[in-house]
């Protein structure tokens, strides 16, 4: 046992639970973002004009109070900070967990833990890698398999052409990771925020996790799938 001179309140302020709170809050930011983003993506089915118009509209919101693409930048900053906080907390807790059990079991079996709860860290890491790739792909347009275009709609359609089926596979794989991350993440965030005080509430948050995971991952997946199968071109 180490001794410290900091007060319990000060120590509690930097405790594992507080890091988890930060994760829960940033996690909820992500949930909100992916919901909106998914909704936006579905505009693909309304045709090129609608989708491109939507992309442009995003950049005009708030004008003239905000400069062009002002809101977008606000979102970007919030997301960037959130990712930084979320990932830092995740890796901090991960390192701590390793330190908390330096000697592993020869045999250990999970009784209750769901697959998704035990893969949050690897799943999250996969998502992080995906986001980097995704931004290089669509936002900075550094990596543009299938060809670049000034139309966001066109960029999408180009990316998921069957010739480079692997791009779609990466996206779809990421959606599986996202679904699992959300499935457990929604419940976990509620538990961390102290919203799951009864068995009934726990059940409800768990259901919400399943629902959100299905809706979000399913909704996202429609786009690459539709392009792949030529429904959208």
């Amino acid at each position: 046992m180490t001794t410290t001179t900091k007060s319990p309140a000060a120590r509690a302020r930097s405790s594992t639970i507080v890091w988890k709170l930060a994760m829960a809050l940033t996690g909820l930011v992500f949930v909100a973002y992916v919901l909106l983003h998914m909704y936006g993506n579905l505009k693909v089915f309304a045709g090129q004009a609608s989708f491109d118009g939507y992309a442009e509209h995003l950049r005009e919101i708030g004008q003239p109070i905000l400069p062009h693409a002002g809101l977008l930048w606000i979102i970007r900053v919030v997301l960037l900070v959130s990712v930084a906080v979320h990932a830092t907390a995740a890796y901090k807790l991960w390192a701590r967990a390793r330190g908390a059990r330096p000697q592993r079991y020869v045999v250990q079996k999970a009784v209750q833990a769901s697959w998704s709860s035990r893969t949050m860290r690897w799943g999250g890491t996969a998502l992080l890698l995906f986001i980097v790739f995704h931004i290089l792909n669509f936002t900075t347009r550094t990596v543009t398999p299938g060809g670049d275009s000034d139309s966001p709609y066109q960029r999408l359609v180009n990316a998921f052409q069957p010739e480079q089926w692997w791009v779609a596979v990466i996206y779809l794989a990421a959606m599986v990771a996202l679904a699992m991350h959300l499935r457990h993440g929604v419940f976990s965030a509620a538990q961390t925020l102290g919203l799951t005080g009864t068995v009934e509430k726990q059940r409800r948050w768990n259901l919400l996790g399943y629902a959100l995971a299905t809706v979000v991952a399913g909704g996202f997946a429609l786009v690459p799938l539709s392009v792949l199968f030529g429904i959208v071109d």
Binding site: R11, A113, S117, T192
Partner: peptide, 13 residues
């Protein structure tokens, strides 16, 4: 935390 226990990530085991 001082004792070196890990943080909870709501796994439920």
């Amino acid at each position: 935390d001082e004792e070196g226990f890990g943080g909870c990530t709501n796994i439920g085991e």
